[in-house]
């Protein structure tokens, strides 16, 4: 059960969405502390957009419960939406509207709309108020959606692929804006993305989603510090108990070497390896992408 005294920005318990007999999201337990930037990572169809839409009450869950800023988005939809900024994935914008018209509309909808800030972002993003959405480039549509999400200065920002169609210069501009004006102000961001390099800059927590399952949800620093591979050569044979050593997730053979796929306990493992005679080894850092692929492979192996 959800404890009402504790109030993270987002909390879900057993959240499940079945669509045409297929579980697109299964038993999701997500917890996003206030003031953090949480990146939801995963391949297409993993359930990222579904998660965000459920939190916005744009989809009805099949099972489970959730709290957004301490409120149930199903029964308190208006209250949640007035405090949450939402940038949908591309293609959700009315095509024949003009930029200025959309800004006016949203200004009327949100009592907390910051006209002054929106105007400065609009200029920074190079968005002409007279331009028709249909004629905007993909990147400009993304920037417009972001602008509409930022306008009410929400406590929580939900960003679905906020880098779609953006070139590196614009991407950096968006990151800086989110860092300074949103994260820097102690507000919370939940974003989904494929761009792992940008995620490393922006996020302090990541969740891996694959086939509707949350494979892990951890602080990013901790993940990079603890997920390692150790390449080792055992001239006298691999110790029989190796796979049960602390932190060892699994063993692989590669080019005549043993590869230990490791999660934590790195120091203890290196000490143990050092204590063996004639063993040479090296601890290899893993990138976020490497780690994600390792977890996705293990998840795939489970269904075989």
């Amino acid at each position: 059960m959800i404890n009402p005294d504790y109030e993270p920005a987002v909390l879900t318990r057993g959240l499940t969405k079945v669509f045409k007999g297929l579980a697109v999201l299964q038993d999701l337990n997500l917890e996003i502390p206030r003031g953090s930037v949480f990146a939801l990572l995963g391949p297409n169809g993993a359930g990222k957009t579904t998660t965000i839409k459920l939190l916005m009450n744009l989809l009805q869950p099949t099972a489970g419960e959730m709290l957004v800023l301490g409120l149930d988005p199903i029964t308190r939809g208006v209250a949640v939406r007035s405090r949450v900024g939402y940038q949908p994935e591309i293609g959700q914008m009315p095509e024949y509207a003009r930029v200025g018209e959309l800004l006016e509309l949203c200004r009327a909808l949100y009592p907390t709309w910051n006209t002054c800030k929106v105007e400065s972002y609009r200029r920074e993003f190079g968005l002409d108020p007279r331009a028709v959405v249909k004629h905007l480039s993909k990147g400009r549509v993304t920037l417009l959606a972001l602008l509409l999400a930022l306008g009410p200065e929400p406590e929580l920002l939900l960003l679905d692929e906020p880098d779609t169609g953006l070139d590196p210069v614009r991407r950096r501009q968006v990151i800086k804006l989110l860092v300074e004006d949103v994260a820097g102000a102690g507000r919370t961001i939940l974003l989904s993305s494929h761009n792992l390099t940008d995620v490393e800059r922006l996020a302090d927590r990541v969740g891996f989603l694959n086939r509707g399952h949350l494979l892990l949800s951890r602080p990013l620093d901790e993940l990079l510090a603890e997920e390692k591979k150790i390449w080792a050569v055992f001239p006298d044979g691999v110790p029989a108990s190796l796979s049960t050593w602390p932190g060892v997730r699994r063993l692989e053979q590669e080019d005549g070497r043993t590869v230990l796929v490791v999660s934590g306990h790195v120091e203890e493992l290196t000490e143990r390896l050092c204590s063996l005679d004639r063993v040479t080894f090296e601890v290899l850092d893993q990138t976020l992408e490497d780690i994600f692929i390792t977890y996705a492979e293990e998840d795939r192996a489970l269904i075989r």
Partner: peptide, 17 residues
């Protein structure tokens, strides 16, 4: 913290840490 985070384009919590 906030200024450096903005300049480097990294999460402010990272700089605080």
């Amino acid at each position: 913290v906030r200024e450096l985070a903005g300049r480097l384009a990294v999460n402010p919590n990272t700089v605080a840490k």
